[in-house]
Simulated assay, not measured.
Amino acid sequence: MTTDDYNLKAQTDSFRQTNTLILTRDLVKFVVSPSDLNEYTDLLPHKNISVYQVKSYFDTESIRKYLFPEDRMIVEWVPYRLLSSNLALLDKKNTVCVSDVKVDDEIVSGLLSIGTYYKASRPGYVYCLDLYGTDMSSVRDHLLSHLGCIAKMLDDIVYVLVFVDNRCEKEKLSYVSAELGLVNWIDSHFKSTLQSLFESKL
């Protein structure tokens, strides 16, 4: 697992000869102040689901291919294979799962979003928001749902990292975030805009 500004060796031919690129996701960063969080306390457009409900997505081929086309999921920088036994590793009090995934006439739509948080090395918290799926029509409700959860759980500045499939309309996410008044997080020490997962060929 790496980002575009961290492990520069991952961009070299020698690294690519011994490692296979599994997936790449875009990374969008926001910062939310405690005063801003007060606005989202009562905003929960989607109900949370249990991480164990994700198993039904693993078991339904059309949904599985839509959400996890590379047969991997990444939560808080950790890659997982799509095994039901791995869901227990995600069953933590700091994990928030939101979904509006549905199948209509064999067409899968909606998003699955999984958020987790941890104490930052600087004052505040980091909230990793992993989005699965390419239909961004409900991304606003997903953001609001997670912001509502953040407002209930945390009382400090929060750095929100949103990871999205690079095949989706990232512009939609940018438009919605601007509409909600979210401020882009610009950090000279963390310029990453891509997250990549490699696996060794050896």
Results as ranks from 00 to 15, higher is better:
Asn19His: 15
Phe68Leu: 05
Gly148Leu: 00
Tyr6Gln: 14
Ile74Tyr: 04
Ser196Leu: 09
Asp59Asn: 14
Ile63Leu: 06
Val158Phe: 07
Lys93Asp: 12
Lys102Pro: 03
His189Trp: 10
Ile49His: 01
Lys201Glu: 09
Pro34Gln: 05
Val28Met: 06
Ser138Lys: 02
Leu144Gly: 06
Val78Gly: 10
Arg16Pro: 00
Leu43Arg: 07
Ser14Asp: 09
Tyr66Asp: 01
Leu82Pro: 06
Glu70Asp: 13
Cys168Gly: 04
Val75Trp: 00
Pro123Glu: 13
Phe68Thr: 08
Ser14Asn: 12
Val103Trp: 06
Trp185Met: 00
Leu143Phe: 11
Asp13Glu: 11
Met153Asp: 01
Ser84Ala: 15
Val176Lys: 06
Asn7His: 09
Pro123Ser: 08
Pro79Met: 08
Glu106Gln: 12
Leu89Trp: 09
Tyr132Val: 08
Tyr125Lys: 02
Leu23Trp: 04
Ile150Lys: 03
Arg122Asn: 14
Asp135Pro: 04
Gly115Arg: 06
Ile150Phe: 02
Leu83Trp: 10
Lys47His: 11
Thr24Ala: 15
Thr24Trp: 00
Val158Gln: 06
Leu180Phe: 02
Ala88Tyr: 08
Glu61His: 10
Ser35Asn: 07
Asp26Ala: 15
Phe190Leu: 13
Asn184Cys: 04
Ser145His: 04
Thr41Gly: 05
Asn166Cys: 12
Asp26Phe: 10
Lys102Ser: 15
Ser196Asp: 04
Asp130Gly: 09
Asp155Gly: 05
Lys9Arg: 12
Ile22Lys: 09
Arg64Asn: 14
Val51Phe: 00
Ile157Tyr: 12
Ile49Gln: 02
Val31Tyr: 06
Phe30Lys: 00
Asp104Lys: 10
Phe190Met: 05
Glu179Asp: 13
Lys172Arg: 13
Ser188Glu: 06
Asp130Glu: 15
Leu197Asn: 07
Thr24Met: 15
Leu129Lys: 03
Asn19Cys: 05
Ser33Met: 09
Val75Glu: 09
Leu27Gln: 12
Leu8Met: 14
Leu89Ile: 08
His189Ile: 02
Met136Gly: 00
Arg167Cys: 13
Asp105Gly: 08
Val78Leu: 10
Lys102Phe: 03
Asp141Leu: 05
Cys149Ala: 13
Ser196Cys: 12
Gln195Phe: 11
Leu202Asp: 14
Leu67Cys: 15
Val31Gln: 15
Ile150Met: 14
Thr3Trp: 06
Thr24Phe: 02
Asp100Thr: 10
Arg16Leu: 10
Ile186Thr: 06
Thr20Tyr: 12
Asp100Leu: 03
Phe58Ala: 07
Arg167Gly: 15
Val103Asn: 11
Val32Gly: 02
Tyr127Cys: 08
Lys29Arg: 15
Lys152Arg: 12
Pro45Val: 05
Lys172Trp: 11
Ala120Val: 00
Leu182Lys: 01
Trp77Tyr: 15
Tyr159Ser: 10
Ser14Arg: 07
Ala178Phe: 07
Val96Thr: 08
Glu61Tyr: 08
Asp4Gln: 11
Tyr57Leu: 02
Leu129Arg: 08
Met136Pro: 02
Lys55Ile: 00
Ala151Asn: 06
His142Leu: 10
Leu147Trp: 03
Gly115Lys: 05
Glu39Trp: 11
Val160Lys: 04
Thr2Met: 14
Arg16Tyr: 08
Val54Phe: 00
Met1Glu: 12
Ser174Ala: 13
Val32Glu: 02
Thr134Asp: 07
Tyr80Trp: 10
Asn48Ile: 11
